[in-house]
Design a binder for these strands. Structure first.
Lengths: 341, 341
DNA sequence: TTGTATGCGTTATCAA
DNA sequence: TTGATAACGCATACAA
């Protein structure tokens, strides 16, 4: 696997009878170097196929132009959209993305964090795993002043910036909508975790009930992993309840959809018997029949925002370096699955 | 953005009154160093929070342990599954993935290739853009003996390894199945590009027709970008045909699904009036009603295979370094959308 | 405007 | 088994 030798600034210097210092300056477009010589240098560099050695450069400058991304899973529509947004911004700014999946495991997340740390990423973008219950594995970044931004799946803390939806409000909106359609006995399908996004959506659900003077019934909260399989199981649970519910608010579209499919199999009419609202605006929501009412979650924008926020911080153009929470707007998209009137 | 200073092997050497050479050896677990001193070194390294400086290391060793991945788009179920498979293999082997999206643009793909080259990736995994019509932008890799593997979207060539499905066979299977269900007038919805996957699927379609003595009708081939929007448009075209087709083979599930939705809107019964087969086994195929018959495309396996193939090549454990084509197995999943008997 | 010299943190060669 | 030392390719402080 032998490599040919690379062209370096020494080679260029020798050919042009200049010092490597001048070459180096010319290559980074330093205004101090004579335009004519700069031109000669750049032309020769081009001709000889020179390419910057980023390892030497990084070794010198102690920056890597690399952003680490830790996410639970890549294979969801939402997450791949987020990554697409990040990649687009990062690429334009000359940053590379290194992506690692925690597979919802705390242990793997810790591992990923260490890898990112050892790879000396300039900054880190993280969406937490279900299992993660503390942020100790990010302390090292804090100590080295490497910025970390959490997005979507976050935790309340004072040390890092969070970028999230107003999940409480979104949960409220979804539930209030069901209530406005006449639902009184509303099931909430959510994740079996303390992760913020689910806690907050549930809180919104509860508040909407309270505001409508509907008593909260623990029995109507179904918890699982939000997979399509769990959607089926949830439907079975719904059907087995002594008094049939008339509405379902699911914390994710995939789960809502598979739940709908099972309910329909069982002869339930949607939305007449049971109205359904999901979360995320996954493309599948306009495939299922009736189309699923859902909360639009701007994944691409979230990715762009997280990346650009981090990068502007890194390039120092960010005045306010303080920790904060950034809220993205959501929107309730009303479709057939919930419209009774 | 000042950083504290890092612990280096010099610091360890000083503390232990050893040379950096010994430290370096101990850290890479060189058997030549005394077990006792090795132990002392590793303990101190741990205690002082030493971390390898990969830039120095890479600068010395001329390897980066980084794999570049260039793909058209990240936000499809198939592609994110592929990436997930790659990431899993790469991570275990100590490699990082750098991902770049070409957005189906030839120009951006060239750009991405250059970035990857400049970042000195150890190897490259590529799925070509719609627009790409030559591979000149990968010549630099060839010259530097940096291995490149193409997957899914490839091009016939002698220089690099391809990992693909037997798209011709898959197209044949899909079409033959429709024929077996009594279809005689079968539409093929495909991409507006010369990319291998689509050409081959179409070829299989034609061969299946020929074997069944059904004349090929150019009019029944609908070309577009395979988006959901195009699925709608394709449905409209189908409905506008003078003689109504009785079968549709679409080169991708998303498009097949949106086409089905529109046909149903128009009062067409599926599969009775028109039977439909898709491609990819996207989760949406079991949401649409009736469930979509499709070709199972093992994305995760393809990602794993591509990455492990590349890595074993890089680590030299690969005996056969010759260029070749690797075929993955596919499977026709027969569901309701095509079953007439 | 250009050049000299040094260090960034490793690995690896040669000696001891 | 360990040590001294020379690269690796670049950026930069200081000098000219």
């Amino acid at each position: 696997m032998e490599r040919e030798k690379e062209v370096t600034i020494y080679d260029l210097a020798e050919r042009l009878n200049l010092s490597i210092a001048t070459i180096s300056r010319a290559l980074k477009n330093d205004p101090v170097v004579n335009p004519k010589t700069k031109k000669r240098i750049l032309e020769l560099a081009q001709k000889m196929g020179y390419r910057t050695n980023y390892f030497a450069k990084n070794l010198r400058t102690r920056r890597t132009n690399t952003i680490g991304v830790i996410i639970p899973r890549l294979n969801s529509y939402f997450m791949s959209t987020v990554i697409a947004g990040m990649e687009s911004v990062a690429n334009k700014a000359g940053y590379n993305l290194i992506i690692s999946q925690s597979a919802e495991s705390f242990e793997k997340e810790i591992n990923s964090a260490r890898t990112m740390f050892n790879n000396r990423v300039d900054g880190l973008l993280v969406s937490l795993a279900y299992e993660s219950n503390n942020l100790d594995h990010f302390k090292a970044f804090l100590e080295k002043k490497i910025p970390v931004i959490f997005f979507d799946r976050t935790e309340d803390q004072q040390s890092f910036t969070n970028i999230v939806l107003d999940n409480r409000k979104a949960g409220y909106d979804a539930t209030a909508h069901l209530i406005s359609q006449g639902c009184r006995r509303i099931v909430h399908i959510t994740a079996n975790t303390m992760r913020n996004v689910y806690i907050d959506r549930m809180r919104g659900y509860q508040e909407a009930l309270r505001d409508a003077h509907i008593p909260f019934d623990e029995q109507l909260v179904l918890k699982g992993n939000l997979s399509m399989e769990f959607g089926h199981a949830a439907a079975d649970q719904v059907l087995a309840l002594p008094t049939r519910p008339d509405g379902i608010f699911a914390a994710n579209d995939n789960c809502a959809v598979s739940c709908m499919l099972r309910l329909k199999q069982a002869g339930i009419q949607i939305p007449r018997d049971i109205a359904v609202v999901g979360f995320n605006n996954d493309p599948v929501s306009v495939v299922v029949e009736p189309n699923l009412t859902t909360i639009d979650y701007p994944g691409y924008e979230m990715g762009e925002l997280a990346a650009s926020h981090l990068i502007s911080h890194l390039s120092g153009s960010q005045l306010l370096q303080k920790t904060k929470t950034i809220l993205l707007h959501h929107e309730l998209l009303v479709r057939k699955s919930s419209q009774r009137s």
